[in-house]
Amino acid sequence: MRRFLHDNALGLVFGLGFLLALGGQAIAGHADFNSQQISHGAEPISMGAYLTSSSFGVDVAENWQSEYLQFLLYVLGTVWLVQRGSPESKKPEDIGTESDVDQLVGRHARPTSPAWARIGGVRTALYSNSLGLVMGGLFLLSWTAQSIAGWAAYNADQISTRQDPTTWLGYLGEADFWNRTLQNWQSELLAVGSFAVAAVYLRQRGSPESKPVGAEHADTADTG
């Protein structure tokens, strides 16, 4: 058990932090929702009603989709784009999907390689892209969830202010949908771009996200 906790500390601590933050979001979101209800002359709702509302759902999903979009773009973007000097980038001469020798694929697989790296055909093609496929799938699923919950929350708001509700397709053209979507995308793109460039010049001793403290600024793909 101690060994499991030690070996999985990163995944466990972040998962626990996620649950605590989600709990905090539920409490703050409920209070914020009710203060708006009161200011509109409507009745406040219970925590149970808030947690089963599309208003809570859309607030959760809009952030999830942008995180998975970020990972999808980063995983795919770093195959083809480099940032000279960044530990987040591969070396400029390695641009592209690289050779089977470098990637330990097919007959170049090691005895300890995952079976699907060696087997060839569709299974190796799928496994070779599985990280991007899962991140992309989660992005599409969470963006869809955002659109459906956002649509329901938008219509509830429209009805409470005596305006016409819209269809799901209609909601995809509404400013509310794109405001929620793009405010999350812009922050992810800024954070990733600035991080990739900052890590050329800045160091965090001991972090695999950083180059070694004494590494040259021009050293690319040299993680500490």
């Binding site: 499991f4 070996d7 999985n8 995944g11 466990l12 998962g15 089963t52 509302s53 599309s54 809570f56 759902g57 859309v58 959760v60 999903a61 999830w64 899962v134 989660l138 699923l141 969470s142 869809t144 969830a145 955002q146 459906i148 919950a149 956002g150 649509w151 329901a152 929350a153 219509n155 509830a156």
Partner: peptide, 30 residues
């Protein structure tokens, strides 16, 4: 690595169930 595989499956399951829950809330017009 059995425990790690379990953690990976737990993460994916929670994410997919969470998103399914949000989709159902929206589809029901809650």
């Amino acid at each position: 690595m059995t425990g790690t595989r379990w953690l990976f499956v737990l993460y994916l399951t929670l994410i997919v169930l969470g998103l399914a829950y949000v989709i159902v809330l929206g589809a029901l017009g809650r």
